[in-house]
Write a protein that binds this DNA or RNA. Sequence first.
DNA 1: ATTCTCATTCTTGCATACAAGAATATTGAC
DNA 2: GTCAATATTCTTGTATGCAAGAATGAGAAT
Lengths: 221, 221
Amino acid sequence: MAENIVQRLRDEIENGIVTNQFAPGDRLDEMQLAKHFGVSRTPIREALMQLGAIGLIEMRPRRGAVVVEPGPHRIYEMFEVMAELEGMAGSLAARRHTDTDRTGLLAAHARCEHSANADDADTYYYDNELFHHAIYTASHSSFLIEQCTALHRRLRPYRRLQLRVRNRMKTSFSEHGGIVEAILSGEAELARTLLRQHIAVQGDRFSDLVATLSQREAHSG
Amino acid sequence: MAENIVQRLRDEIENGIVTNQFAPGDRLDEMQLAKHFGVSRTPIREALMQLGAIGLIEMRPRRGAVVVEPGPHRIYEMFEVMAELEGMAGSLAARRHTDTDRTGLLAAHARCEHSANADDADTYYYDNELFHHAIYTASHSSFLIEQCTALHRRLRPYRRLQLRVRNRMKTSFSEHGGIVEAILSGEAELARTLLRQHIAVQGDRFSDLVATLSQREAHSG
DNA sequence: ATTCTCATTCTTGCATACAAGAATATTGAC
DNA sequence: GTCAATATTCTTGTATGCAAGAATGAGAAT
């Protein structure tokens, strides 16, 4: 586990950003972080560079790293791309899924049903991730799986915000039902369309997103 | 100019990989590279990590970095995703393009026409990049532009291989015509479909790809 | 009082040093 | 002669040191 120091640091700092411990605009001081985590600056720097590559922070030359605030429009764009990629995954899954995929998808769906009925947002949030991963897996495109996973990860904090919106959890789950059916019955284009709509931040959902974002802003400041 | 040694190194090494100077499977020795570029190991390491993040090399813990050989299937998957993203860009471009975008797209198209008629593969390769970038730009989604640019860059070497296939250049250019028309006339779904087909490695083109790949293999080995 | 300039300080960027794990070679035993 | 075990070497991973650029504050001039 000695090698994973950088990975650990990356995850810890990423988590700090996601949980708003490091607010957007904050400067991430290498020495401060190094002292805080009890390591030297070298692994901290590497972790920061990785976060920079992901896009979570911006690294200004000779001026340190700052936490990026994507802004509503940027977040909208990211969801837009995510919707397309998930739609693609769904389409491929409909055509390529095996019995194992089918089992995995149904299992994830069942878990979502459970947590949605229990009205447990935190568990649903997690089970929802499993559900989407099950779709990625069923696409049988390792590259697509990686792309989807990366973007999914990047959008994690905003997904969590969205679940706070009234009734979003139940709506989300009911949409899952149609998606599962489309995939398992092999209707590729239907699966694509449903997933696209499931992910996309359209109409009211965009104003909801902006609202929850500014709420969070007020909270942290 | 003194600022970004790391960026320079990253580009140089990436170029070395793309031009098969560093063949797939080669181990990239940090000290060797450091000596070769006249710098210390630190910036080399950072550059390698960035290449690892892009996916050009694989970094095995405590065992160094090796150049990744994607393999035909993997490359196929990447083109598959690229096709979808370009289709999306085309669809958005059809709906959102401005007069400036229109001018840029037509200019790029004209350049392609010129180099295709001159049968100049190298120039066409470059102009083709401009053409696709013009489409990305017209999508007016900064995030999508970034994603497309990154993947396009990643696929650059294989794109170049594909142009070597007989008549591919002329075919490519004639497909561009339909794409331009669809975008400028605002036919979003048509633009999406045409771009998807333009990029996708389907049918014969896959075996062509495999063939050119193994040719290159023989050359380097 | 405000602003501009210069000096100090602080942080990043690169280099070097040190430690630890993996690869390799050598030696011994069967 | 071959295989295995151990020692050596070699490379990566982490820490620290040093130099250069940027931020900051003080002082002077308007």
